[in-house]
């Protein structure tokens, strides 16, 4: 007898495609937030599947801090061509130049917090009413409580205590003028699910996820790559290491891990054995215990 059971990856994929289609159906001007990281890559891959053979009926939006890994930008442009999506880029540099934000000073200056303003400005300029993000609930405690269709008030803010109940798969995207939604199609995926799916679907990913040699320094318990934005201090000795990245973020706050994993399978084996979460390599989350909750309330991804 034929068994009508879905493997967990196909179950998750079916749910995500449903959410992506629901977003396209319920909103007038949706967009997909694309960071160049594996989560948004998987999300955009499923967006392509969701509407095939038609093109993805919404643009992808990248908020460029100006401090990205060059490999990420190169990958982004390749991938957008591959999936046939329109790309809109919001530059944090523009927000700085127009005085919308002030750049942090000092050796730990990061443009991570500034992204929020650029993101909200980009949403406003393009009148997006729903932005899909690749956040997962397993990543972080504040995210574990967020809805799939997450309401934002007219200031782009999230109110964790006043979320709409979300039942079955009946997603409510109704809103008043000026309000918008963040939508999280891969809410229920874990880091491991994402990797297993990348293997199953043979999806290309940026090279920095694989082992390579790079000049790094130690700072705040992390290995940061030296670059135009990370200048070694007097006591920080740059050295060459064999590393890779578990997340793709801003160069100023994304730490490398020692790794010789140069294939997807080796990466998965390494994660299986790993004893730290991927966000442990992000200094933006270490600033305080409730760092993500505060940023999300302010309108962060």
């Amino acid at each position: 007898m034929q068994l009508y059971n879905l493997d967990h990856l196909r179950d998750l994929e079916a749910e995500s495609i449903y959410i992506i289609r629901e977003t396209a159906a319920q909103f007038e001007r949706p967009a997909l937030l694309f960071s160049g990281g594996k989560d948004s890559i998987v999300m955009s891959h499923m967006a392509r599947k969701a509407f095939y053979p038609a093109k993805i009926p919404f643009p992808c939006v990248h908020i460029d801090t100006g401090h990205n890994f060059p490999e990420t930008i190169e990958y982004r442009d390749m991938w957008m061509k591959e999936i046939g999506a329109n790309l809109i880029v919001g530059h944090v540099q523009d927000s700085i130049d127009t005085g919308r934000v002030k750049e942090e000073k000092g050796p730990n200056a990061s443009r991570n917090a500034l992204q929020t303003v650029t993101l909200l400005d980009t949403i406003a300029a393009n009148k997006f009413d729903a932005c899909m993000g690749g956040a997962r609930r397993d990543e972080e405690k504040a995210r574990a409580k967020e809805r799939i269709f997450s309401h934002r008030d007219e200031f782009g803010q999230w109110d964790p205590k006043n979320q709409r109940p979300e039942l079955w798969m009946l997603l409510n995207g109704k809103k008043s003028v000026g309000e918008n939604f963040r939508v999280f199609p891969i809410s229920n995926w874990t880091e491991m699910d994402v990797w297993m799916y990348i293997v199953a679907e043979n999806i290309p990913i940026p090279s920095i996820y694989f082992s390579h040699q790079r000049e790094v320094i130690d700072r705040d318990g992390m290995m940061l790559a030296t670059s135009d934005f990370i200048i070694p201090g007097p006591n920080e000795m740059p050295r060459k290491e064999i590393v890779r990245y578990r997340t793709v973020g801003d160069m100023t706050c994304t730490g490398a891990v020692f790794s010789t994993a140069s294939t997807l399978q080796e990466v998965i084996d390494e994660i299986s054995a790993s004893r730290t979460t991927e966000r442990g390599t992000r200094s933006d989350d270490k600033r305080s215990e409730a760092a993500m909750e505060d940023r999300k309330k302010a309108g962060y991804f």
Partner: peptide, 25 residues
Amino acid sequence: GLRAEREQGITIDVAYRYFATPKRK
């Protein structure tokens, strides 16, 4: 998860958790 809960010491909303064993997710 949320700071408000920590202060009150109670869980105030639905939170989703994930784990896997070799048999199931």
